[in-house]
Design a protein around this nucleic acid. Sequence first.
DNA 1: CCCCAGGCGTCCA
DNA 2: TGGACGCATGGG
Length: 225
Amino acid sequence: MSAAVVLRDIYNLLLVHFGPQHWWPGESPFEIMVGAVLTQNTSWQNVEKAIANLKTAELLSPAVLAALPPEVLAEHIRPAGYHNLKAGRLKNLLALITGQGGVEALLAQPTALLRELLLSVKGIGPETADSIVLYAAGQPVFVVDTYTHRIFSRHGLIGEECDYFQLQDLFMDNLEEDAALFNEYHALLVRLGKEFCKKTKPKCEDCPLAVLARKNGKKGIDNAK
DNA sequence: CCCCAGGCGTCCA
DNA sequence: TGGACGCATGGG
């Protein structure tokens, strides 16, 4: 079974089962960027509270946040957890935005450069950078997260040791380079993870992907290490 | 009470 | 280079 076929089968199963997820849940590119930082190791439910706080206080714009003392910002985003840490990370991101002449100008940079710029920000790692590239800039990179790794390793499709970039390459080498596809695929994997592939309470027997086991066996994916 | 959530940086061998 | 740890709130 080729990787391309397996990846397509999984996508089709998930899309039929769950339907389109309409990601990212945010109203503007800047809101998406803020949400991407706030959701680091944090449930989206908590992030929503923090973003609602910012909106209510009319703080959710680059210019306003840039002028806000970090301690004040931290108080508003408290529900998202790690608020002191994340206030600093948002400040770092705002410095990049300002330095690049604004959100529009930053997000208009070519994919590879945009990714490098984001990764140069202290507090923005591979997943946060890729989330911004895909969901805020609409450029085609595949976003990997803990759910992606957990789902694929539990189904025996990759090894436990498969790292972020190996897993990302697996998708990007075997799917057409299409931002809309990458968008929906990642969103569907998160949906699946939340409902059927939690860390300690996997509902594997009910997993929509259970049919894959019979079709694909335990052979894994051909070019997965 | 416990464990977990759409990570990342630091430290230390 | 890689494994442990801190960061922190809200939900189940």
